[in-house]
Nucleic acid binder design. Structure first.
Length: 941
RNA sequence: GCGGGAGUGGCGGAAUCGGCAGACGCGAUAGGUUUAGGUCCUAUUGUCCGAAAGGAUGUGGGGGUUCAAGUCCCCCCUCCCGCACCA
């Protein structure tokens, strides 16, 4: 491009860059986006929004990756920024800040690769992110930026951990309470101890064990997800359906290991029920509901010669149809149940070809354990299992039913044992067919039902045991359930029960780069909370911070925590109130999710050294807006991938803090909005290798790199796919404002869409036209006139103001921008731009393109930033059209048009319409004429 | 398999309450500006028939309700997401 023909005052990328940097500096200097707190050091009574209605806008804070940002990353941040800027102009006190989720696996892996300390790389990445985000003109309150790796921050993460550790869930009260109150109840005898002995009769160790069993954070020895490739254990939520780690895609194995758990299951009901209070996308709520997986049913005991087998069933009404039982292979009763020899008459098919039941069970267990989850899934069609040689008694029929083990029953759900009712359960039906087990219908299928298992509603049949005082016949499923549960409870054969799919949250990781636990162990190995004054427990420096990782397939390897190698840190002498003693520190660290469970609250009061957040400030920014309101962040924007992980964990922590009286809101995020993703095309050559996407051209219906035809695929943007486009490139080529407008205009924020660099120019042209509406690009002089606008332009302006306001409130930025383009196109035709249009146009453009808007606002004669300028308000009188054009349909097709005064009577519209289509009617008399006021006229012949 | 979401021009999308389908942008075509390309400006641009006027047709497919359906109802197809033997 030669400079010669570009008008000297045109809005070019170079000018945009100059304007943008100038305004970014000024905003920073003036603290333009500082939001005043009601109290504390961040209070500011002189602030234009002090005491105004508050609005807390939040982004899911990023993990600062070493790869930097691509154009997809800031989509949500720009969206919240446009929303926040609009709301500020609309009069609200808006809190919008950005922090960094900087602990976690990827930081550590990257550090391992580059050989530098995770803190060094993480801090450098954060700096780079900050610079990149600043370049986009995001209006964040910089004073409130926090990073989870700051000791000032994780000191409070540890503090909250201690609150959870020092709490138990009181089921009667339906909330968490301090452990001290539990001990007091035991001590005064108002709460019986588990084994009934008086509290005073328990040894110190026994008391501690009882209390530890109640804690919301506890150590357990249980099967966990061990991932040798990552050298750490993982939460259920971090393991994919095919048994691999969500991060790194390594195999995950079940191992019995001692680990920290969080009793999130205690909150199952509230996490489920409170979803109804939230303004969240329904799919996300549904995913949480499914993940929690509450099932109502009953526990039923089936006696056997050795011990009763307790099953969980959602269909206790079908117990008369229970013709066999199945235990998970790992079920604890299997070993005691199995006799030394097959009972007389055992069918060959049930034995798996083994001479005795012990061998058969042993072989089946071995085979099941050797299968990967993928293999298990592949074989789900074919039911396998083996007879244990034992029988149980059906408590309602008194019949003897065989007990099998089979891997279609999961150890981890319910009781790990089921009563099998093939007639009313498809899985049981399949198993019954394979093993030729009896099938007894206990629900009458409807006439003509030709399926196998019938799981629908219907009258109970074959379900009476008069000698036991039980008769379900004729009852519907719901009635029969109620009747049988009452019977089970009366006779002591079981009781109504609720189970959850949700498991307790595995909270420890065998890594370096995370929050240390504020926990030490005494000589007896008991976990002891460090007192608050000893926080933070700082992450110690180590020579080798990389965790020990293993052959990803080595299921028998054992985790080794990096912190355990620092013996001088692990072994510590402390005085915890009873004199100096030797203690051993916990060497696990917290999972990545810990910091994100509460970070939004630290934004509210980032400098507070006495509390994680001041109560006043929490109540102002997040408190309930009335009776029954859950409170929380007013708008939380982020990707749907956190549907169950982060969002469930954060809700759980928040509820614990609420129960303990530390916060006034009982949900952290009142409104959730899932932004879509920016996707991209990638191209591969004949060998399948990725080629640089920016060099590929489309022609003749194909894609070519030079003369070579290449394949197109659609998906993520990534370095290895050679299709990355960065915000920096876009800022350099067009300016940040153009980039922002493009991202907001390319579609609704919640929808994923492909990136198209060549389309960015459309937004560039739009801003150039806005610029030209105010500035003569040849002379640099103002093109704004103080003469009034013509009627048409004025009406257009007010229609646009009205529409844009509505769109902004509803987060429909793409249509808001379309309206602004219409308005701009409307004034570019004019020889001069009336001030009454130019000013509102600039103000309305400001949320999307804040830099150019500030610049033009200044050129319009305003010395101060437009951050707190009033967003334009439409004049209702100008929204009402003087005349209305009605399309006139005849038999559903538009045959004419009439223009009538807006206040024309219906009869007048009707006759004008008939008049307009008189030729089409050709003398025929309409059977019906429908006038829809202000819409259309429909004539039916 | 179960649950959820979505299918509209060459492309991204609009149509908010059942009321003129395709706003706005990209691309394409033509013209203006320019030495030229690019930029910028103007116009056209769903498809088919037609020189035009105009007509027909059109929102994944098939039925239906209605004066009127992208929108409501029934059946089917495709794609995306979640869960995955959860008793």
């Amino acid at each position: 491009m030669t400079e010669v023909d570009v008008p000297p005052f045109r809005y070019t990328a170079a000018l945009a860059d100059q304007i943008e940097r100038r305004w970014q500096d000024r905003w920073e200097r003036e603290g333009a986006f500082h939001a005043p707190n009601p109290s504390g050091p961040l209070a500011d009574p002189a602030h234009p929004r002090s005491g105004a209605e508050k609005l807390f806008v939040l982004d899911m804070f990023p993990y600062p990756s070493g790869a930097g940002l691509h154009v997809g990353h800031p989509l949500g941040y720009i969206g919240t920024d446009c929303f926040a800027r609009y709301q500020r102009m609309a009069g609200r006190n808006v809190l919008h800040a950005m922090g960094f989720d900087a602990f976690g696996l990827p930081a550590e892996q990257y550090a391992v690769q580059t050989g530098t300390h995770p803190r060094t790389t993480t801090v450098a990445n954060i700096d780079r992110y900050r610079a990149q985000l600043r370049r986009l003109g995001l209006a964040h309150d910089q004073r409130r930026s926090v990073a989870t790796i700051d000791t000032d921050f994780y000191r409070w993460t540890q503090w909250i951990f201690l609150q959870i550790f020092d709490s138990w869930y009181d089921r009667e009260a339906g909330r968490a309470r301090p452990v001290s109150e539990l001990i007091a109840e035991f001590a005064e005898g108002s709460r019986p101890t588990p084994d009934g002995r008086p509290w005073s009769g328990l040894s110190a160790a026994e008391r501690r064990a009882v209390v530890d069993d109640h804690r919301l954070a506890y150590v357990s020895q249980a099967p966990v997800n061990w991932c040798p490739g990552l050298g750490t254990v993982l939460a259920n939520e971090e393991v994919t359906a095919d048994g691999r780690s969500e991060r790194g895609n390594f195999p995950v194995f079940k191992r019995n290991l001692k680990q920290w758990m969080m009793r999130i299951t205690a909150y199952g009901d509230r996490l489920l029920d409170d979803l109804d209070k939230l303004d969240w996308p329904e799919p996300i709520k549904l995913m949480q509901r499914n993940w929690i997986g509450r099932s109502h049913g009953a526990h039923v005991d089936f006696p056997t010669p050795v011990a009763a087998i307790r099953v969980f069933t959602t269909r206790p009404d079908t117990v008369f149809g229970a013709t066999y039982m199945v235990l998970a292979p790992e079920h604890e009763l299997v070993d005691t149940l199995v006799p030394s020899a097959w009972p007389a008459g055992t069918r060959q098919a049930w034995t798996g070809g083994h001479a005795g039941p012990r061998e058969a069970v042993e072989a089946y267990r071995k085979a099941a354990a050797a299968k990967t989850d993928v293999e298990r899934q592949a074989e789900t069609k074919e039911k396998t299992g083996v007879f244990t040689g034992a029988y149980a008694t059906n408590p309602v029929t008194g019949g003897q039913i065989p007990i099998f083990i089979a891997d279609y029953v999961l150890a981890g759900y319910g009781t790990g044992a089921i009563m099998a009712v093939p007639a009313q359960d498809e899985r049981d039906w399949e198993f019954a067919e394979v093993f030729e087990l009896p099938i007894v219908r206990t629900v009458q299928p409807p006439e003509g039902f030709d399926g196998r298992a019938y799981t629908g509603d219907g009258p109970a049949v074959n379900s009476a045991a008069p000698e036991r005082g039980l008769d379900l016949d004729g009852l519907s499923v719901a009635e029969a359930k109620a009747r049988i549960i009452a019977w089970l409870e009366e006779t002591g054969n079981g009781q109504g029960a609720v189970t959850y799919r949700l498991r307790d949250w595995l909270f420890s990781r065998q890594r370096y780069w995370g929050e240390p636990f504020p926990i030490v162990y005494d000589a007896d190995g008991a976990a002891i909370a460090l007192p608050e004054e000893m926080l933070p427990v700082e992450l110690p420096e180590v020579d080798d911070f990389s965790p020990r990782t293993f052959d990803p397939q080595d299921a028998d390897s054992d985790p080794e925590t990096p912190l355990s190698r620092r013996r001088d840190w692990v072994e510590v002498e402390l005085d915890l109130g009873d004199g100096p003693k030797r203690y051993t520190r916990e060497t696990n660290v917290m999972p990545q999710w810990a910091g994100s469970c509460w970070y939004e609250m630290r934004y509210l009061d980032p400098t507070n050294g006495a509390r994680f957040v001041d109560a006043d400030n929490e109540r102002y920014w997040m408190g309930p807006r009335g009776e029954g309101d859950c409170g929380g962040v007013d708008l939380y924007v982020g990707g749907a991938e956190h549907a169950v992980l982060h969002l469930l964990y954060a809700r759980f922590w928040h509820k614990v803090l609420y129960d303990l009286g530390h916060v006034s809101s009982f949900e952290p995020f009142r409104r959730l909005f899932n932004q879509g993703y920016i996707q991209a095309y990638a191209y591969t050559d004949a060998r399948g290798a990725y080629v640089p996407a920016e060099e590929v051209a489309e022609r003749d219906g194909g894609w070519f790199l030079g003369d070579v035809q290449v394949n197109r695929e659609y998906g993520k943007m990534g370095k290895s796919l050679k299709n990355v486009v960065t915000p920096d490139e876009m800022c350099a080529a067009y300016g940040a404002d153009t980039f922002r407008v493009y991202e907001m205009s390319m579609g609704p924020l919640e929808v994923s869409r492909p990136w198209e660099t060549r389309a960015v120019v459309g937004s560039y042209r739009f801003l150039q036209r806005v610029w030209r509406a105010v500035v003569d690009e040849r002379t640099g002089e103002s093109r704004v006139t103080d003469d009034p606008a013509d009627e048409q332009t004025r009406r257009l302006l007010h229609k646009v103001i009205d529409g844009v306001r509505g769109d902004m409130e509803q987060i429909r930025f793409n249509t808001a921008i379309a309206k602004l383009i219409e308005l701009t196109n409307g004034v570019t035709r004019l020889s001069a731009t009336p001030r009454e249009v130019a000013e509102p146009l600039v103000l309305m453009v400001a949320p999307f393109a804040p830099h150019i808007a500030e610049e033009l606002w200044q050129r319009l004669g305003h010395p101060t930033s437009l951050t707190y300028a009033d967003f334009p308000v439409a004049d209702p009188a100008l929204l009402v059209a003087e005349t209305v054009t009605y399309p006139v349909q005849v038999n559903g097709k538009v045959r004419g048009r009439i223009e009538v005064p807006a206040d024309a009577a219906e009869e007048a519209v009707r006759s004008a319409a008939l008049n307009a289509v008189v030729g089409v009617l050709a003398g025929r008399e309409p059977r019906k004429v429908i006038v829809v006021p202000a819409r259309m006229v429909s004539v039916v012949l």
